[in-house]
Design a protein around this nucleic acid. Structure first.
Lengths: 202, 202
DNA sequence: TGACCATTCTAACTAACGTTAGGCTACTCT
DNA sequence: AGAGTAGCCTAACGTTAGTTAGAATGGTCA
C-alpha cells in the first residue's frame, strides 16, 4: 500500500473520533480505550501517534478554534467592505453557530472540554482562543469605527456576551427542533435591538 | 454535647466543602478523599452522611439553584411593582451575578459542574434548573406585558442569551479586576440598548 | 456502672484509568 | 531473498477512584 499518508490518515481518524467523543461526553468521560475502540485499534497503539491523552486533546482544542475562526473569516470575506452593522453581526453569529452546532466536532469539543481539561492543557490551548477573541474584537471594532455599531458600546462586554450566549447554545440546541439560521437570526436580532421598547428612549 | 444538629452540621460541612471544591476543580477533578480531607474526616465516614458521590453532587446542584433563585426573588421584591424594564433587567442581572460570583459556591458549582456530571445526576438536578428558567420567563413576561420590555422581543431567546452570558462570566471573572456591580451594569446596558446605533432605526 | 447507639475510622476490595515494554506482522528497499 | 522498520498488538504496571464491612470510639440514658 501507499505508506505516505497512511499514518496521517490514522492520526486524523483518532482526532476525529476524539473530537466527537469529547463533544459528547466531556474530557473525563472519554477514556483512551474508548477512543482506541472507536478508531479501530487497541489502546496501546494510540501512543504511536500521540505522546499522551493531554497532547491529543490540545490538538483537538486548537483545531476547534481554527475551524470556527476559518468559518467566520470566510463569511466576513464574502460580505464585501460596505456591509452594515446588522449584517456583519448576523453573519458572524451565523458562521460561529454553524461551526459550533453543525460543521465541527472540534469546535464543539473545544467549547465543552476547555473548562474541564487539566491546567496544562488549558495553557497550551489558550493562545489560540485568545487569538479568536482578538479577531472578534477587531471585527466589532472595525464595524463600530465605520458607524455600523453603536458608538459608545463597550465592545469587550459585547464580545463576552456574544461568546457566552452563542457557546451556551451547545448545551441545549437540538438540530431537529430548530434551524441554525433561525437561531442565528434571533440571537443577532436581540443583540442588535436589545430589550428596550422602541417607542421611547430612556 | 448537643446531639440534635451535630450530624446536620457535619452534613452541611461536607456540602460546603464539596461546593467549593466542585466550583474550583469540576466534577471529575474532585475525589471523595479530597472532600473528606477538607471536611476533617476519613473517606469512609462520608458514607454515613451520603449514599454516594452522585447523591452529594445532586444536593449541591439543587442548593445552587435555590440560592440564586432566592437572591433574584428577594431583589425583585425589593423593587416595588412599578419599576421600569431597565431597572428590572439590571436588578435581576445583578442579583444573579452576585450569587454566582460572590455569595454562593453552590451556584457556581452548579454552573460549572452541571454539564460535566453523569446523566443520572443531571436528571435529578434538571427540574430545579427548569424551575429557575421558568421563573425568569415569568419575570420577563410580566415586564413585557407592562410595556417595560420591547413588545416583539422573543423572551425565550432573551432568557437564553442572558443565561449564557451571565453564567459564562464564571470562567473569566476575577473579583480583584472589576466589581460585580460594574459588570452587571455593563451587561444589562448592552442587553437593554443593543448594538444598533441610536441615531438611525434600521 | 453497664448497655446501647450514633458516629467515625481502618483496611481493604474491585474496577478503571493512563501508560509502557516488548514482541509480532507485513511491507519496503537494497 | 534478506534486512530493516513502520505500525499495531499483547500484556502488564502502578495509581487512583468510589465504595464497603467491620471494628473502634465516645456520649446518653437506664
Amino acid at each position: 500500500m501507499v505508506t505516505t499518508d497512511e499514518v496521517i490518515d490514522t492520526r486524523r481518524r483518532i482526532l476525529d473520533v476524539a473530537a466527537r467523543l469529547f463533544r459528547e461526553q466531556g474530557y473525563a468521560g472519554v477514556s483512551l480505550r474508548a477512543i482506541a475502540r472507536e478508531a479501530d485499534m487497541k489502546a496501546g497503539s494510540f501512543y504511536y501517534h500521540f505522546a499522551s491523552k493531554e497532547d491529543l486533546v490540545v490538538d483537538v482544542l486548537n483545531e476547534g478554534i481554527r475551524a470556527v475562526r476559518d468559518s467566520v473569516e470566510r463569511a466576513m470575506q464574502s460580505l464585501g467592505p460596505d456591509a452594515d452593522g446588522s449584517t456583519i453581526l448576523r453573519t458572524a453569529v451565523h458562521a460561529h453557530l454553524t461551526s459550533l452546532l453543525r460543521l465541527s466536532d472540534y469546535t464543539s469539543a473545544n467549547v465543552r472540554v476547555f473548562g474541564q481539561a487539566p491546567e496544562g492543557v488549558r495553557v497550551k490551548a489558550l493562545a489560540t482562543r485568545r487569538g479568536y477573541e482578538t479577531f472578534w474584537d477587531d471585527l466589532l471594532g472595525l464595524a463600530q469605527r465605520r458607524g455600523g455599531l453603536r458608538g459608545d458600546a463597550d465592545l469587550r462586554v459585547a464580545r463576552l456576551v456574544i461568546f457566552g450566549a452563542l457557546n451556551a447554545s451547545l448545551e441545549w440546541f437540538r438540530p431537529d427542533r430548530g434551524s441554525i439560521e433561525q437561531l442565528a437570526d434571533s440571537y443577532a436580532d436581540l443583540l442588535w435591538r436589545g430589550l428596550r421598547p422602541e417607542a421611547l428612549k430612556s
